[in-house]
Design a protein around this nucleic acid. Structure first.
Lengths: 232, 232
DNA sequence: GCTTATTGTCTCATTTTATGACAATAATCC
DNA sequence: GGATTATTGTCATAAAATGAGACAATAAGC
């Protein structure tokens, strides 16, 4: 919600992003905490009158993560009337000494477009927005209570991610460009929240003909070094 | 777009419905033709300020088809800036002798929420809206050129329907409550646009444990009569 | 050179799917 | 009423995919 003032936004419409990252073990998402409020929320924002919704979301992700060219997928629009939450919004504005009438439109009912992003955890420098004093990674099974229906948005994003993971082969976006078979398997396990068989997984992935094999990765461990792969 | 005047709509937001029906052989969708314009479009409408988007779409489907309790799924929001199409819209308003300033907001940029509906073809009485003089079924591979990006919306709806058909088992919604295995197979074939093996399909459907078997259907044909089924 | 943990690749068993075969009908035609 | 016809429900076998384990090939430590 950077630079809210003096902009022409589409009224009653916002976007929210569930930004997924994988730290090597756990699937995590980026959560903002608003200044002096104890209110947690998904990164999001508004859409300018001459801006596509996709571009607005892209820009939002870039501002929070510093990343360009991120895998970003719009998955749902949340359009219940009960979404309006003037109380929380007032607390955020008040905490920022922003009681101007010109921002009172933020108290109205909003429909929000849900996006999920998959990013390479290592490359990110999380940056809070103008109303927030912190932004951080939270494991998906240790989320705080989020404002409005944001927990619900996360839940839906996770469902969509799970069903898209194998079908659309998007797991790569959570990894560096080169990775081992084990890393890839751990991404699948973290997203699907279930253990997979090593041999079956390996055979499946190789048979899909989507991986390119590179040099081995020597980790200084007392065992055979694994090959590295990248997606074709 | 019934009763546009004197209503409080959410600005810059609309919905459009791809209403699928199956006539026994072909997958079809409902298309409107606007009066005296030669402009074809998907049924759609606007959302009242105190109405959920889902409810608005539900109401829209009911007005066009007469049907309640329809399978309805929101699948995407189309939010490109280029969606605005003031020329077409002006033609529609002019053809209806509606040059009032109060409806000039319809010329602005709109984001539209895409829904697809699956209905029982036999139960429908298609009804045009206040700006249209005809509504009719068109086979999905014989669509006219639709206004704005509506052809694109149909294309995306079809993609989503195809990927949801087996996964979510929603084929039933295109059939009467009782149907034969052959009818069900023809729905799958029409949606997926490919031939399926009879024995494999039958075995698969029965193994899913979602069908209830009823009395046979005697069609007066010189061969064994098929059982009828319904979904559990 | 011996030990250790992990990796890449087989093998065999099990399950699922493909493909064809076949008997059991409903109605029609002599 | 018996033969004919087309379609249906189900089974039999072949082929493919997956599950589950075995095992040799390493890198590094001792």
């Amino acid at each position: 919600m950077k630079g809210l003032k003096n902009k022409n936004f589409i009224p009653n419409l916002s976007f929210d992003c569930v930004i997924f990252g994988f730290n090597g073990k756990l699937l995590k998402i980026l959560i903002l905490e608003y200044q002096n409020t104890g209110v947690y929320a998904l990164p999001g924002g508004f859409i300018e009158i001459d801006q596509s919704i996709d571009d607005a979301a892209k820009q939002g992700v870039k501002e929070r993560t510093g990343l360009d060219n991120v895998y970003l997928d719009q998955f749902y629009i949340f359009g219940n009337v009960e979404r309006a939450d003037p109380d929380h919004m007032k607390r955020i504005l008040t905490a920022n000494n922003d009681n101007t009438k010109e921002n009172s439109w933020m108290l109205e009912r909003f429909n929000t477009v849900g996006y999920y992003a998959l990013i390479n955890y290592e490359e990110v420098s999380p940056t809070p927005d103008e109303y927030s004093d912190s932004i951080g990674w939270y494991a998906i099974d240790e989320l705080p209570k989020l404002m409005m229906d944001h927990n619900n948005i996360v839940e839906k994003a996770l469902q969509v991610l799970r069903s898209n993971l194998s079908e659309k082969l998007i797991g790569m976006n959570l990894l560096p460009s080169k990775f081992t078979m084990k890393q890839l398997q751990m991404v699948f396990e973290a997203v699907l929240d279930q253990k997979l068989r090593r041999t079956t997984f390996q055979r499946k992935m190789l048979s899909l003909d989507i991986l390119e094999r590179h040099e081995k990765l020597f980790q200084g461990k007392a065992h055979k070094a694994p090959y590295q792969y990248s997606f074709k």
